[in-house]
Design a binder for these strands. Structure first.
Lengths: 195, 195
DNA sequence: ACGAAACTACCTACTAGTAGGTAGGAAAGA
DNA sequence: TCTTTCCTACCTACTAGTAGGTAGTTTCGT
């Protein structure tokens, strides 16, 4: 039912790897062309401009996050376990180097220099993630499974910040395990009387 | 007593602004030349290569941090007040847009794509900052002015991560006040029984 | 008159993007 | 069924502009 052509997906995947490594200006059409084995003009066939490419990439990234978080919420009703699974997901991604950084976290860092079409998509991701975390935390408080010291929205922002900062630290000290090490006490502070 | 020539400093200052805005690949010698009103060839006189320029910039950034933190420790012996002052400093910088992001935090995000000479300097900054924070936290625990739930080194890493992540969030939501909002509960969790 | 700091003028390599064409398959009309 | 037409996917070959960097010269302060 779906198009069998996966070149566009290959381009997006390569672009994601490059962006995660070095940001928006850290790669070129030539770089992508080389790793997937086509000419750079062919990339323009799938994505007329670099802005189109990255915009599509980030938009899809957000869509995947929305559906992914939805599934996660369905499977795991308890907030503490939900937060643990979320950070565990990233810990895994960083550990096996499959997705060693969040695309949007990286792009956000260079937001003032980003094309506006891309910037708006990045901002949307942050808004979604922070909103989702706020919801999870709020529910946890209502269930009595989480203890917080500020408003859920603020706690959510702080949690998200720590996740992104922990990615940065893991990268900076070249130690993938650093992410999990940093997140452990952060989770502990939200979850009362665990194991 | 100091050299009256400030062009090299002007170049470094301009480069810092550009890097803070868009990272290592987000600016060119031409960009710097334009804003400070010289030709780009003249920049090569002061900094033969871009690597030299950014390496010098990051090295000086670390030196300034080392002396700055030293002074801070001399002036403020109490750990809670020290952490508050440190985050307050960044809150101020972000608020007045004078230094809306940490140079090394930004460069760390694109670390895999950075020239190795620059990467090593960035890593040194992270090591210093995390070590300094660990010392501050350890002393606070000994003084009984801080309560922690993990080893001082881990708490320090988590604190640093939250600071960097909060910068990112402030940038992403385009609201400078977000930084202080995020840091408030983070500080509160470390400081027991405060007003 | 000497060196530092700036300049003009240039280089090569690479950037995103375009023009125009080709190979092959699907569709559609007689 | 054959042929024309269209489409997708890719190609070669090119453009204008920008990247970092160099060579050689002039300007300026002491």
């Amino acid at each position: 039912m779906n198009k069998p052509s996966n070149t566009a997906d290959d381009i997006l995947a390569a672009a994601r790897r490059f962006i995660v490594a070095g940001g928006y200006n850290g790669f070129s059409y030539a770089d992508i062309a080389e790793v997937i084995g086509i000419r750079k003009a062919s990339i323009h066939h799938h994505f007329p401009s670099k802005v189109d490419l990255v915009q599509t990439l980030v938009r899809r990234y957000l869509e995947d996050a929305v559906t992914g978080m939805g599934e996660l919420e369905r499977k795991i009703p308890q907030s503490p376990e939900l937060l643990r699974t979320y950070t565990g997901y990233w810990a895994q991604c960083i550990e096996d180097a499959s997705r060693p950084f969040c695309v949007c976290a990286l792009l956000a860092s260079e937001l003032p220099a980003l094309p506006p079409e891309v910037a708006v998509e990045v901002r949307a991701y942050f808004q979604f993630l922070s909103g989702w975390l706020a919801g999870v935390i709020e529910r946890g408080v209502e269930q009595g499974t989480l203890t917080i010291s500020a408003a859920p929205r603020v706690e959510a922002e702080a949690f998200m910040a720590t996740v992104h900062g922990a990615m940065l630290s893991a990268r900076a000290c070249g130690d993938a395990a650093a992410f999990a090490t940093i997140m452990a006490p952060t989770l502990q502070k939200l979850i009362p009387a665990t194991d």
